[in-house]
Design a protein around this nucleic acid. Structure first.
Lengths: 144, 144
DNA sequence: TTTCGTGCAAAGCATTTGCAAGTAG
DNA sequence: CTACTTGCAAATGCTTTGCACGAAA
């Protein structure tokens, strides 16, 4: 808890109760890339006065300070990624999960391409995740 | 025109006047990755009865048939990419343009990663485009 | 006391839906 | 003829804004 409090202070954000709770949620669910709503739903259960507005405010403050990154793979919803180290994402078309992918890509090292100055490199895959692949296979076996 | 008409027929879409016009716009502005609004604004000038709904309908039909791809780099707007060959994108943080980038990436050839089945590979850069870089430099010279 | 954050209610907007009239084949 | 498409109007739902209250320094 103290660790997260310091994270906020370092970024010049007052460590309010709500901000700490949002950050704690992001920290605990680092791998689920939650939506605004997922965060709100989870926190509202514990903090009855929590409002959507506060989640929006908080996330946009975090975004500004570089604490989180927006992931817009699906095109219909924004998901939030607690920024640690740069990585790619995998979006499963079946279950909708977004999974972190850590692979080294020579292109990701580029500082320039076609004369443009590169500041960020983003990459993502779409397809079927490991688990959905497994259940697809089981289904096929069941059918036989 | 006949070419585009055939494109629609091949995909099983009735080549209506509106669809042809949207497709023609996409074909002509292949490199500008327009938003729904940009397409609507341009076409409404020539076709007074054109409606937003029709642009939405048309694009979603195109998307379903794989004629276009959605580009969601900015997070606040969806842009449409007339599908030709797979390529990456460069988003300029200053002017907001989205530029096609053709580079070979070894990762893009992957059919599988970490046990997940890869069907699509997407990559994009963010930074300053060639032109904005140039005007930044000129500005600095002007200041001196 | 002064500044900043919270959270309710209302506003704003892009997108979707319902549906009547029109059109392609 | 028959099914599909168009496009207006209304509804929907996510996100932002205005603002009063409250907390922190």
């Amino acid at each position: 808890m103290e660790r997260l409090k310091n994270t906020l202070k370092e970024k010049g954000l007052k460590p309010t109760y709500q901000r700490l709770k949002v950050l704690e949620y992001l920290d605990k669910h680092e791998n689920s890339h939650p939506t605004v709503e997922m965060i709100y739903e989870a926190l509202a259960r514990k903090i009855p006065t929590m409002s959507m507005t506060t989640v929006y405010n908080t996330l946009s403050a975090f975004l500004e300070k570089g604490l989180v990154a927006e992931v817009t793979i699906t095109g219909t919803e924004v998901r939030y990624d607690f920024v640690s180290t740069p990585h790619h994402h995998f979006f499963c078309k079946k279950c909708g999960n977004i999974i972190d992918i850590n692979i080294k890509c020579p292109i990701a090292e580029k500082k320039q391409t076609h004369g443009h100055k590169v500041e960020e490199v983003h990459g993502y895959f779409k397809g079927l995740c490991k688990d959905c692949l497994k259940s697809e296979k089981n289904k096929r076996i069941d059918d036989e």
